[in-house]
Amino acid sequence: MRKKSVSYAKYGYIFSIPFVVAFLVFSLYPIVYTLVIGFTDLRGLGVKEYHFLRTAEGNLDLFGNFRTVLNNKTFTTSLKNTIILWTANFIPQISMALLLTAWFTDRNFKVKGQGAYKILIYMPNIITAATIAILFNSLFGYPKGPVNDLLMKLKCIDGPRNFSLQRWTARGVVSFIQFWMWYGNTMIVLIAGVLGINPSLFEAAEIDGATPTQIFFRITLPLLRTILLYVLVTSMIGGLQMFDIPKLFLNGGPDQATITSSMFIHEQAFSGSYLYNRASAASIIVFGIIIVLSIILFQILKDKDEVARRKYLRAQRKAARRRVNS
């Protein structure tokens, strides 16, 4: 019988060291730098000196950049677009991913060739955004292009349409591309989640005579909650940072209909005036929005398991202490 004090807490710290060190070495400086310049007058190429903002009278005026950005109509437009584009691609994305997950994990009906389907459905995520953007640009070409040709052949329109000038078509296409590039990814995450569920739960349900639909909604979905939280939070973060496709597809057009907040940040910093301070302030605002939305998501999908786990660990710690004391 070993007589050792069994407090395992130190392993929590030890196992976190690599993460913390790598973060401190490579990411801390860039992040702090980004956060700080949002409050300064840093703009222009190669400028190294910067000062915190002051009013004309010399008082500190730390939030000057934030005021400017919030009053910037392009910024508010970009926020609005980002939310529209994210919603329009996320709802179909998660629905389709859930549907496919249900199909591919159905224990009564093994979809033949599902291995191949899973692989193929993820494939749009492998191609670079640039390639996809070019492809869709050509598809919607004007005055000649496959979509125009097809619609004209089907007599839906009598002359070629310049789709790149239609706000909602442009938004629709951007959302579709995002949906199409990511639903396979989401599906794989969800399937991995289902595979982590203890099969005996399904077996028990089957013995009780549950239908596949019931099993999916009563067992699979509730147990997928932790993974769903991950999907929601990361895709919200990814969605609010959407950049490649709207940038490469129509460069934010037409008339700023597809400009996103990340594009706005990028343009402030890199399109000629090097307004690093404003770009940073806009980043911080977006960061704030993401945090608020994440907290809401965490509240809704309340970490029930986390609460249970905390209780378990606490009980364990107490038990360990008792063992040491006795």
Partner: peptide, 23 residues
């Protein structure tokens, strides 16, 4: 620590890349 990790994840990547390659 978990909250901290979540917070890092939420920082918009756009701008910290400048700081990164300067560094």
């Amino acid at each position: 620590f978990f909250s901290f990790i979540m917070a890092i994840m939420m920082i918009p990547a756009q701008l910290s890349s400048i700081g990164f390659y300067q560094f």
